[in-house]
């Protein structure tokens, strides 16, 4: 009988300690991030000074999908959108912390054609209806490029890259960041066969971050936010293939 008592006691203390432990250990932060910035964000967060204090969960997805999840009550603390439109809509609906909208990165477009004399008649861009990269690409094409190839629309800028990378589309207007990441990984010269499009010739692709009003971890969210916007991190983001964020220009 006393053995059973001991065991129950032991179990009781065990559970109690477990609970205390989880309360005192780390803060949790759930970040929704546009798929095209997931890899850079992971990379940046891993070497952040608060990497041990804040436990961060990332949910990557298309900005539009994440946006619909947020307005229907998804438990995110922060949202890194691939555009400025959705953060603005969230602000309109009073779902974000005041003054928490910031531009964390500005996308750069590149015209990529891995094989110069390809007979392929397709050019891949992201869908202009939903992706700011696609919108900018279309704008650029309508005014400057005026290609006579047929367009294939990718559901995001990463897929546009994939279409060209797999050889199914002969060229594409893709994100400079995708090309740089691919070159970093595979060191293949085909990822260098691009021309960067001049910033003035397409609308700026501002990717903005917001802190959501429903958050219980405001302190942790602010830490991450100021880390992302710090000059050191911003210059790192630039090196990954983005323009400098405009507060720093």
């Amino acid at each position: 009988m006393s053995m059973l008592y001991n065991r129950v006691c032991y179990y009781f203390w065990f559970v109690l300690l477990l609970n205390i432990n989880s309360v005192s250990a780390t803060e949790n932060l759930h970040i929704a991030v546009a798929s095209n910035f997931k890899a850079p964000l992971e990379q940046l967060l891993n070497k952040a000074p608060f990497a041990d204090e804040i436990e961060i969960t990332l949910s990557a997805g298309a900005s539009g999908v994440l946006y619909s999840q947020i307005i229907h009550g998804a438990p995110f603390d922060m949202f890194l959108s691939a555009d400025a439109k959705r953060p603005a809509l969230l602000k309109q609906q009073d779902l974000i912390i005041k003054e928490s909208i910031h531009t964390y990165a500005t996308g750069v477009l590149a015209l990529w054609q891995p094989e110069l004399n390809s007979s392929n008649s397709y050019i891949a861009i992201a869908n202009p209806r939903s992706s700011p990269y696609g919108e900018a690409a279309k704008y650029y094409n309508d005014r400057y490029l005026k290609t006579n190839l047929s367009f294939v629309l990718a559901h995001n800028i990463t897929q546009a890259f994939q279409f060209v990378d797999s050889g199914n589309a002969g060229q594409g207007i893709v994100a400079l960041a995708s090309l740089k990441a691919a070159y970093q990984q595979h060191a293949n010269d085909k990822y260098l066969a691009y021309t960067q499009l001049p910033y003035q010739q397409y609308p700026a692709i501002t990717q903005q971050v917001v802190v959501l009003k429903s958050t219980d971890n405001l302190a942790a969210a602010n830490k991450v936010l100021s880390y992302l916007l710090s000059p050191a991190v911003q210059s790192e983001i630039t090196e990954l293939g983005y323009q400098k964020a405009c507060s720093q220009c």
């Binding site: 539009g64 999908v65 869908n127 209806r129 939903s130 294939v152 559901h155 279409f163």
Partner: peptide
């Protein structure tokens, strides 16, 4: 590749609208 009349099926068109 989301081409109307060629590969843009209903599920894709739906996803487009939501996006």
């Amino acid at each position: 590749g989301n081409i109307p009349g060629e590969t843009q099926v209903v599920s894709i068109a739906l996803y487009d609208h939501v996006e």
